[in-house]
Design a protein around this nucleic acid. Sequence first.
DNA 1: ACCTGAACACCGTTCAAGT
DNA 2: ACCTGAACACCGTTCAAGT
Lengths: 211, 211
Amino acid sequence: MARRNDHSRKQIRELAIQAVLDVVDSDEDATITARSVAKGMGYTVGTLYLVFRNLDDLLLQVNSKLLQHLYGDMNVVAQNSEGPRDTIFELAKCYVSFAEDHPGRWQLLSHRRDNTLGHDAVENEADNIVEDIFVLVQTELTRLAPTRDSKEIAIAARALWSAIHGICIVTASSHLRRRAHYDARLLVHTLVHTYLSGFMFDKIESLAPRS
Amino acid sequence: MARRNDHSRKQIRELAIQAVLDVVDSDEDATITARSVAKGMGYTVGTLYLVFRNLDDLLLQVNSKLLQHLYGDMNVVAQNSEGPRDTIFELAKCYVSFAEDHPGRWQLLSHRRDNTLGHDAVENEADNIVEDIFVLVQTELTRLAPTRDSKEIAIAARALWSAIHGICIVTASSHLRRRAHYDARLLVHTLVHTYLSGFMFDKIESLAPRS
DNA sequence: ACCTGAACACCGTTCAAGT
DNA sequence: ACCTGAACACCGTTCAAGT
């Protein structure tokens, strides 16, 4: 054995990433293991460490890829919807769909990373995409209330998007524990509807003359 | 060694729970280990399995205790605030304070449990307290809009509380990655303010005559 | 009866040795 | 040069054996 040279370094990385996705797609509760990933890609454990710094590094790259896809989908959705209000609803739906249709992949995103790797390029890349997603929402909120302070809108966007994320988490967790199930889509719709009502109402109020 | 009989079964359980809390209090990122818990309580690993079914069972009991405390605090807060609107703000602040002042304990709450243990008494206990917390919020929302459908209010309460939780999670995670930090307290305040505005606005609208 | 600690089957990670 | 797989230091969990 040894010395096969079937794949380039980049191809091996791709194989590993695909193997991780295959594992979580086949069982959302599966624990990702260096050995299981290696088996899935047809190599041995050692090879993994030839190409990634460690398991966290691999998972980080998977997350980066997942976030890129999600961001891409969200951009398409943003393009194809009518008006900022509708767009925000569609963006939220897009996120819930990702969480519900690919629970394994979605859970991968909240995998706690070790701080052992310093400020990595890939680490920053993943974080930057998350930032881009926030900005997407921020842009639509700005369209809804063009006169409002941009700092305020940034806060509103973060609050709203974190809230949507929170609903997905709580719903998934109560689903896991076979609890009375509240539909994530319904909860998110309610949240966005109520939040946007409040957002617009506050605007009206601040524009109204002081009584 | 062997046969010390220093503590009763119940005392040993208490020692273990305290040991877990000590570990996460001293380092929020510490990994809870059967051996580290055992060392912290002055026993050996085996003893842990004399008193808990496994590590998850121990962590579940810790969570149950933490949730009881949190629920107690929230009840005190609910008693001492003026009016439903103020109460909801105070409840939210109470949760954020827990997450920020005791990050290790708070993170323990989102520890993913194995499904290996069936429908346990303790498991249900923890879930029931979470349910009670939702009800607390639900009660205040009902006071704000007594005429609204109770099912709708239940949904509104879950959406709001999950949203608050989500903000804490996203904030903690970006804090961990040393990202530009948005204050959780500010985000939660914005969320609650905006959400309640929307909640009241929708009520007004639905009460208003159809035009 | 109560507790221990060696043992087992797993981890992540490394690195000398094979081709 | 490329990859292997045994080795190491850890896990969670069990259970025969000590007092």
